[in-house]
Design a protein around this nucleic acid. Structure first.
Length: 486
RNA sequence: GUCUUCAUCGUCUAGAGGCCUAGGACACCGGGUUUUCAUCCCGGCAACACGGGUUCGAAUCCCGUUGAAGAUGCCA
């Protein structure tokens, strides 16, 4: 029997340690967490490492780190002992063997000695026909057991009755009907004694008292086979919550599935690109689930409060970096100045001479940063003036051109030189005076000075702020150089 | 190929027969504020895949077509 009893909701997240966390998997974890927590239930972490060929060193730590950074605290797991351990499948080997044999005794599984099937050729469309039953299925159980115990390699397959139909209800997709004739005698126990996902999942979910199975919709069509297993054991079925897939866009702009095998969109990847973990969590929460209101920004606590299975969508969702980016900027803007400076600093790649003015730079950056990784390119001009074409002095809106810029710089340079300190206010005043005296838009002198100082059309902060950071000497040097070129 | 599923603006979505001349958000375009660019604010563009039903009435229900995705592994 299950080690947990009672009606408490229990969900689990069961990733395999591959070394990175695909956002699709993280979203599955999120929903499992939200479902449990919204019901006051438990969220369990289980490591599915039954494929020894795919074992990656340190991968379990990646999973812990990801869940911690995403704020998804599990109640039980390898690192948080509970009553249903061990929580690592490779440590549960004997358990699966025992249950597989029980199934053989009950006539719902059998030993198979056919050996490994060679993988089909690339492009070969012929697929194994489920109606073709393995010849070992009819073997005398006594003889089969004898051969198995004599050391002959074997696997244990599920014995499926191909007659009739299987019907089950999914919390998202509703009633699903599948003809049993398309079901195959899937392998439950591999020749190395490890269980397959298909078997380990059922056994563990039952043993760990999982009430709601939350997973991707790719498992929809194999769910009848799991149900047959539950029934063979006489176990109660869990509530199924299948999630729509997350799709991606390739370089050609075509939409295809965001494959978890290609792993291009991993959580750690996104963080390295300068997305905040809270923003990523918020974004993926809305990829396939709707709060049914116009609110889009949610803290994890709010999500727990608002989460409901009825908001889950059936159709696949395309992962959109543009929207993530916007959401990230919203989260960045909500950071305190201190938090922003701290979060942005590792990304800034600041040259030593600018280190003392980082606070000033950060305050300019704060409200105009969407991605932390873009900071270096935004502030590179402070360390070194980039080369630029004088065409940059053209600007339609402020009616600027190289000629107007020349006039501006020629007149303002001596006045800037007269300043003892390049304070924002003082610089601004001189520029304003120029605009007023010449009856031009303020943008005109602003534009000219900005370009001369930075070589860029868009900068964090205006001329006054830039000169303050650059200092008197460097500012004047750049302005003189620009004037000379004009 | 077979099986299963899905189908509203470019994208994420609201919509559970009349409240829909289909709402919100991102992106895009335009305007305004701002000591300039950006931020911010305001406005605009833009969708019910198609064809049949059912109904007084369909984005919403049914059937078909088309399209898309998943499964069909000693991977999970």
């Amino acid at each position: 029997m299950s080690c947990m009893s009672g009606k408490k909701v229990r969900t689990r997240f069961a990733p395999s340690p591959t070394g990175f966390m695909h956002v699709g998997n993280l979203r599955t974890a999120l929903y499992a967490y939200l479902l449990a927590k919204s019901q006051g239930g438990d969220f369990v972490l289980r490591i599915e490492d039954t494929d020894r060929a795919r074992y990656v060193e340190g991968a379990v730590q990646v999973i812990y780190d990801t869940l911690a950074r995403a704020g998804l605290r599990h109640d039980e797991g390898p690192d948080r002992p509970g009553d249903c351990g061990p929580y690592v499948q490779s440590e549960r080997r004997e358990i699966y063997g025992k249950y597989a044999e029980e199934l053989v005794r009950k006539g719902s599984a059998y030993y198979c000695f056919c050996g490994k099937q060679e993988p089909a050729e690339e492009g070969d469309e012929s697929v194994t026909d489920a109606s073709e039953v393995c010849p070992c299925c009819g073997m005398d159980p006594v003889e089969a057991a004898k051969r198995a115990s004599s050391g002959e390699p074997f696997v244990i397959r599920q014995k499926i009755d191909r007659s009739g139909v299987s019907v089950f209800t999914d919390a998202v997709f509703g009633e699903i009907t599948i003809e049993n004739k398309v079901l195959d005698d899937q392998i439950l126990l591999k020749s190395d004694g490890m269980p397959t996902y298909n078997f380990a999942n059922v056994v563990d979910d039952h043993l760990m008292g999982i009430t709601h199975v939350v997973r991707g919709s790719e498992y929809l069509s194999s769910t009848p086979k799991y149900n047959l297993l539950y029934r063979a054991f006489g176990w109660e079925l869990p509530v199924y919550v299948h999630l729509p897939l997350i799709m991606g866009r390739n370089a050609e702009g075509e939409i295809s599935k965001l494959s978890k095998r290609h792993g291009s969109v991993s959580f750690e990847n996104l963080l390295a690109e300068g997305y905040l973990p809270e923003a990523v969590v918020n974004y993926i929460a809305l990829l396939g689930w709707s709060p049914k209101s116009d609110q889009e920004l949610f803290s994890l606590e709010e999500l727990v409060e608002r989460f409901d299975v009825s908001g889950l969508n059936k159709s696949p969702a395309v992962f959109d970096y543009g929207k993530l980016r916007w959401m990230n900027s919203e989260y960045i803007k909500r950071l305190s100045p201190e938090e922003f400076a701290a979060a942005a600093h590792p990304f800034a790649a600041l040259p030593e001479k600018l280190e003392p003015v980082w606070g000033k730079i950060a305050s300019l950056l704060h409200q105009r940063t969407e991605l932390l990784s873009e900071i270096p390119q935004k502030i590179a001009f402070l360390a070194e003036l980039p080369s630029y074409e004088t065409d940059l002095f053209f600007n339609k809106k402020s009616k600027s051109s190289p000629e107007t810029a020349k006039a501006v710089l020629a007149e303002l340079l001596p006045r800037f030189e007269a300043l003892e300190e390049m304070a924002r206010e003082a610089v601004g005043k001189l520029i304003e005076d120029y605009a007023e005296a010449h009856g031009v838009k303020l943008g005109q002198p602003m534009w000219a000075v900005r370009i001369a100082l930075s070589g860029l059309p868009v900068t964090p902060g205006g001329p006054g702020e830039i000169m303050e950071i650059l200092g008197r000497e460097e500012s004047l040097k750049r302005l003189r150089a620009a004037l000379e070129r004009l």
